[in-house]
């Protein structure tokens, strides 16, 4: 069965499940690998983008994507199907983020120690691109220091530009909680960036 292709606009969910989706969801919940593959085709980029932003490490993000879709059948059996599937998938990623965050942080730290300087591309880049890369890496290091809940709120709302309503639905907390976490995250990140000496 094929699903209509949707525009993979960054972080935006399908508000309404496409026609035939229910049957697809049933098959996925039964563990049908082909059904899960169809869902993967449709949503993997959004899940991977979120994972990369949250973890700051491509390999760890890949592991997270793998885990999300491996766990999908079991998770779908509990899903009430009252929201968008992509929101649900990002929610699975959030729920299993903890150990991925730890391993990504460990590896980044190890690689940086080995290289004896922050890991960067070895190819020369224009100044602007270099600054962008440095800023992104600095922010990723600062994100490592945040509690996971605040980190998730920041990535969802600021990096992925989701509304606090969307983020609340993904995380499964109230909108107020998300706003509060975001507020604290931003304050800590500003202080942290300053301490890093980034200008």
């Amino acid at each position: 069965m094929s699903m209509p292709a949707t525009t993979l606009a960054l972080g935006r969910d399908l508000a309404v499940a496409p026609q035939g989706a229910e049957e697809l969801y049933d098959r996925a919940a039964d563990g049908d690998p082909d059904a899960v593959a169809v869902i993967y085709d449709e949503h993997h980029q959004a899940v991977r983008a979120f994972a990369t932003r949250l973890l700051g490490d491509a390999s760890a993000a890949e592991d997270m994507v793998h885990e999300v879709f491996i766990r999908l059948p079991r998770a779908m059996r509990r899903w009430r199907r009252d929201g968008a599937l992509r929101t649900f998938l990002i929610g699975i990623a959030v729920n299993h983020a903890r150990h991925h965050v730890r391993s990504a942080r460990r590896r980044r730290a190890a690689v940086e120690r080995l290289a004896q300087q922050p890991v960067m591309g070895v190819v020369e880049t224009p100044e602007a691109a270099m600054r962008r890369e440095q800023l992104a890496r600095a922010l990723q290091r600062c994100l490592d220091k945040l509690p996971l809940a605040q980190r998730v709120a920041f990535v969802l709302c600021e990096v992925e530009e989701r509304t606090s309503v969307e983020a609340a639905a993904i995380v499964g907390v109230s909108e107020g909680t998300i706003r509060s976490r975001l507020h604290h995250a931003k304050a800590k990140l500003r202080a942290s960036l300053e301490r890093e000496g980034v200008r």
């Binding site: 960054l10 082909d34 593959a37 993997h44 991977r48 983008a49 793998h66 800023l135 992104a136 990096v159």
Partner: peptide, 27 residues
Amino acid sequence: ALREETAPESSATTRRRDRQTRARIQD
């Protein structure tokens, strides 16, 4: 900067990686 650095990209390498992850999940 972080948003741009981590924006989804589409290249031969990423497409191959995506296919491999998909196959791994199915297996």
